[in-house]
Amino acid sequence: MTELESGRNHLLIDPSLHVWGWQIALYLFLGGIVAGIMVFTGLRFLGRTPRPPSLAMALIPWFAPLLLSLGMLFLWLDLEHPFNAWRFYMVFQVSSPMSWGAWILLAVYPSSVALAWVSTREALGGPLGPRDGPWSSLWLWLTRRLAGVEGWLRAHLRGLALSNLLLGSALGIYTGILLGTMAARPLWNSPLLGPLFLVSGMSSAAAFMLLYPLSERERVFLGRTDLTLILVEMGLLFLWMVGLASAGAASQSALALVTGGPFTASFWSFVVAVGLVVPLVAEWVELRHGQVPGRSAAVLVLIGGFALRWILVFAGQASGWSSEMALM
């Protein structure tokens, strides 16, 4: 028997070592969806002969800045000293993924808003906004002012789409890298976490988009894409686990958290079964039988995407190098 006593605080509770909670898990989830939406939107505008999208598809890009704002609100809530948040933009720390993230987020906003604006205008054609009433003149003034900008954006549409694609990918990868560079948490410490989070984010985004009244063609496209993404995600998860299993003792004990430890049941049911296997089968069956992908599988994918982040955030903090942390 090995007995540990740590005077730091209570061994397993360690309140002062509380690091990240649900806010971060939620932020990572929303960030992943935002990344996916941006990638998909970017791809749509990069396509050679863009067919007219459904109204829902045209409006969906707005979710990028919206969900990101929501996510950043949670991120901000998690800060212990929130009114020092401006410090993020006083420096650029090359070695800090969080610093990268902060600057990426800064770039994501204009890019995603611009593309959403263009997408909306494109879909609706005519003037937007109130045509009469007290605000109409202001609106008119604004649209006129923005017309120039819009023209410029349209002229550089491919660049804008590319920037969305790249920023979206960066955002998706960064959420994984943020955890992946923590050498102190063996469960996270894998270069695969970046791609994994990107792919999972895209899969979640596809599922998220499927919740809206898209056209049949769009649904089939997203369903097919999601199917591929799920397969890739499963492959990445498998590689991530193989990587942990073949690394040192700390990584192995970290892996044991999800293969026989306290996070096992939740990981395999929510992430693997509910989030991956079942939707995979469901979507495959749907597409195979020529049906339009429905929403059930999409909801499951979203549940799985959130569960992946939630479990990774908490299990990762429970993993550690020193034996007392791995015990948790």
Binding site: R8, D14, S16, L17, V19, W20, D78, L79, E80, H81, P82, N84, A85, R87, F88, M90, S96, M98, L178, T181, M182, A183, A184, R185, G316, Q317, G320, W321, S322, M325
Partner: peptide, 18 residues
């Protein structure tokens, strides 16, 4: 300068920070 983002706490293998 600290904003309390806690990245350093997560990054420390020794649990030295709070």
């Amino acid at each position: 300068k600290c904003s309390g983002c806690k990245a350093c706490i997560a990054a420390c293998p020794y649990g030295a920070r709070y």
